[in-house]
Design a protein around this nucleic acid. Structure first.
Lengths: 137, 137
DNA sequence: GAATTTATTTTAATTACTAAAATATATAAA
DNA sequence: TTTATATATTTTAGTAATTAAAATAAATTC
């Protein structure tokens, strides 16, 4: 039986909002008790993962203007969680990376999960990404 | 071979950010060319799906204070996309719902996707939610 | 070496958000 | 009933996040 356009849109939204709720729930656990905004926590994690990022990369990852990215880094720099290094090959570029204190903060953020929990969430995310790869919008 | 805690955290973040990127990409397509913030678009869609929402429900869905939810509704009301109705059983509660113009706007938002595209994205989202159900954080 | 491009920062203004007080209705207890 | 307490939303005033555009500075091109 053929579904109407109305129905398929309805289905899409239904599934989309379940995902949004689940995603909010996860972010709430991850950033819970952290006195940092969600984006600042995510920036710390990205810096942990990628080792260093340019301001433009940060602004793209968070869909913000470079000015806003500079501002986020200022805040984390004030807390001594990140440092800026002008790269010698091209001194226009800043390389933002975690300090020792920043690394420790990232560890603390994940300490609310057991290793087993992290592994199971991680493999679920992997499955999700397999689906993304198969389906491209 | 046993993976270190460092490694499993690394894996989790890696997969998490791919999901975040994909999600950003989708939201960009969805809200592209719309002169409304991402959250205002998502609120229109939620109202389309649920028919009506209370202010407290909106604030929970978007993880905002009730004051912020009131403000979002004010903006959409000014555009004549939503209306507020005090429910008669309990006049403290407002029921926010789409106007005819709001319904049309939601249709317009989805007109950037073909029916087939919507169906395929929808079934991918369904698969993702099956994974969520199996895995609970 | 002058003009153009690229990367980041700064500035000023706007927008989004929060916390807390105010308003209004509902419920419960005396 | 009155009074107190609880619930739902709105208002207010202040703060935080964000943008657009100008400023700075280094790199590239012509």
């Amino acid at each position: 039986m053929e579904k109407s356009l109305e129905d398929v849109i309805h289905n899409l939204m239904e599934e989309m909002f379940i995902i949004q709720n689940k995603s909010n729930e996860f972010m709430k656990i991850l950033t819970h008790d952290e006195n940092l905004s969600e984006n600042l926590v995510l920036l710390l994690l990205r810096l942990k993962l990628y080792r260093h990022m340019k301001i433009t990369e940060i602004s793209e990852a968070f869909m913000l203007t470079p000015g806003a990215a500079t501002n986020m880094c200022d805040k984390l720099e004030k807390l001594d969680y990140v440092e800026r290094i002008r790269i010698k090959d091209d001194r226009r570029v800043v390389r933002v990376s975690l300090t020792k204190k920043g690394e420790e903060r990232v560890e603390a953020i994940f300490s609310k999960f057991s290793k087993e929990k992290i592994e199971s969430i991680s493999s679920m995310f992997m499955e999700i990404n397999k689906l993304f790869k198969k389906n491209e919008y």
